[in-house]
Amino acid sequence: MATMRDKHSDGCGNIHASQGKSSHDMTGGFEDHSMPAPTSMKPLYLDLPTVAATVSLSAASVQKLVRENQFPKPRMLSGRRVAWLTREIEEWAEERPISDLIPPPNTGHNNRRRRSTSS
């Protein structure tokens, strides 16, 4: 038979097993300190579309740079799945030389003048 020290109520009528590291909180329930608080963690691995977006290149350009040994190679995650270590992508980006060129103006298709098609 469990003692009161082994089980506690969460204040909603539910009984939970105590792991011995509980403390009484201000609301009359117990607060469990045995599990670390969830933290936000950046991903360890990135897939090809995410890598391409992260470094502002197309997926084809990333693959070409990998073939030319100018970009980190992906790691095998399983038999048919590869991904890049986030740390290696960040290091590669930091190693890029500083450019003297200014960014070009927006050259997207939306800025081009449309030909008028008069009959």
Rank of each mutant, 00 (worst) to 15 (best):
T3Y: 11
M4G: 13
R5P: 03
R5D: 05
K7C: 08
S9W: 07
C12L: 14
N14H: 15
S18N: 03
S18K: 04
Q19W: 13
Q19H: 14
G20E: 02
G20C: 01
K21V: 02
H24K: 06
D25W: 00
G28S: 00
G28R: 00
G29H: 02
F30K: 02
E31I: 01
H33R: 06
H33E: 07
S34R: 06
S34D: 07
M35D: 08
S40T: 15
M41P: 05
M41I: 14
L44Q: 11
Y45I: 00
D47G: 12
L48T: 00
L48D: 01
P49L: 02
P49C: 02
V51P: 01
V55I: 07
L57G: 00
S58E: 05
A60Y: 06
S61M: 14
S61G: 12
Q63L: 13
Q63W: 01
Q70H: 15
Q70Y: 08
P72C: 10
P72D: 00
K73P: 04
P74S: 01
M76Q: 02
L77A: 00
S78P: 03
S78D: 00
R81E: 08
V82I: 07
A83E: 09
A83K: 00
R87I: 07
E88S: 08
E90L: 08
E90R: 06
E90I: 06
A93W: 05
A93L: 13
E94W: 13
R96V: 07
I98V: 14
S99Q: 04
P105Q: 04
P105K: 04
T107Q: 15
T107S: 12
H109L: 09
N110I: 01
N111Y: 07
R112H: 10
R115S: 12
S116M: 15
T117R: 15
S118R: 14
S119A: 06
S119V: 08
S119R: 11
S119Q: 14
